[in-house]
């Protein structure tokens, strides 16, 4: 399944970038993220709780940030497995800052298997859209907080 889209942040590029690579921020923003631990450089072990329709389950996941080009782009690789099956995803996250605003675009491919494939395939596109939109709105709040605190500390 292909995933593509973008989100406009009302924050400058640096703030958005810092949030996008901050594991604590990510842990707060990824819907269903119960745990996110550093496993190595730019590499994390995560526990994700996912519910698609009637299917609910936990994925033990491994997340990597690769090919980081600060303030510009990185590749996100996610691999998870659990009672519902498995998921594998890879996507490119790109930032385009213009003044006080930053556009984040993403494009990637997700592969699923097991129960979520046979039962959830039909609902997956909608689920992905919703999850990503929740992620970005949480992230937007985080960047605004970050911007405010940055402003405060500047004063």
């Amino acid at each position: 399944m292909k995933i593509e889209g973008s989100h406009l942040f009302k924050s400058p590029g640096e703030k958005v970038w810092n949030c996008l690579i901050d594991p604590q921020v990510l842990a707060r923003c990824i819907p269903g993220c119960e745990k996110l631990e550093l496993a190595g450089e730019d590499s994390y072990n995560a526990v994700l709780k996912i519910g698609i329709g009637a299917l609910k389950g936990t994925f033990i996941s491994h997340i990597r940030l690769q090919d980081k080009q600060p303030l510009s782009q990185y590749k996100l690789v996610v691999e998870g497995e659990g009672g519902l099956g498995f998921l594998k995803g890879e996507g490119l996250i790109r930032l385009a800052a213009s003044g006080a605003e930053t556009n984040v675009s993403y494009s990637g491919e997700v592969q699923i298997g097991g129960l979520i494939a046979s039962v959830g395939q039909r609902m997956l596109q909608g689920f992905a859209k919703q999850t990503i939109s929740r992620f970005f709105s949480s992230l937007a709040r985080e960047t605004e907080v970050a911007s405010e605190s940055a402003l405060t500390s500047n004063n």
Binding site: I112, G113, G114, L115, A117, S118, V119
Partner: peptide, 14 residues
């Protein structure tokens, strides 16, 4: 079956 061999018509909804 999808290109990875996953049965994607796995319920009576599909």
């Amino acid at each position: 079956y999808d290109e990875n061999g996953q049965l994607i018509t796995g319920t009576l909804m599909d």
